[in-house]
């Protein structure tokens, strides 16, 4: 019994030390950042927007959105959806240098959306003032 206990104790200490010390001496692994493929990015964007559109439609039909809100949200997300569809059309065929393209494209979409916001804001300001 004593021997078993002693052995177990040793194993416990050994495992603990191993788990803590091992990463300290092991050569550092290269950490991989998340790399989305270009289609994947757009696909996610698309899925999200169209899901939202469906949701808006559904909520409206379920009487959970007022007419005005529905119109407004629907137009807003449709416009958004059109942008994504356009972006999808311009995606080049998958090639070797995807990583770089993906970043660019993401930026491009962001910029486009940013411009859209600016435009809307400007328009509203104009109307208000």
């Amino acid at each position: 019994m004593q021997a078993v206990a002693l052995l177990l104790g040793l194993i416990l200490v050994a495992v603990t030390v191993y788990l803590i010390a091992m990463p300290l001496v092991k050569p550092e692994q290269e950490t991989q950042g998340p790399e989305w493929e270009v289609e994947e990015t757009i696909e996610r964007e698309k899925e999200s927007i169209f899901t939202t559109l469906g949701e808006i439609e559904f909520d409206y039909q379920m009487n959970k959105l007022s007419d005005e809100d529905y119109e407004q949200l629907r137009n807003q997300y449709r416009r958004h959806a059109v942008e994504v569809l356009k972006a999808e059309e311009t995606v080049p065929q998958p090639g070797p240098k995807q990583g770089a393209v993906s970043v660019d494209l993401e930026k491009e979409i962001e910029a486009e959306i940013e411009a859209e916001i600016q435009r809307l804001v400007a328009k509203q300001k104009g109307k208000k003032g």
Partner: peptide
């Protein structure tokens, strides 16, 4: 927010079918 202007509306209308199908 404002209603979309005519240009916008036209563009949306062009995509109407695709949008519905995708949705």
């Amino acid at each position: 927010a404002e209603k979309p202007d005519a240009e916008d509306a036209a563009e949306l209308a062009a995509y109407e079918e695709i949008l519905n199908a995708e949705m």
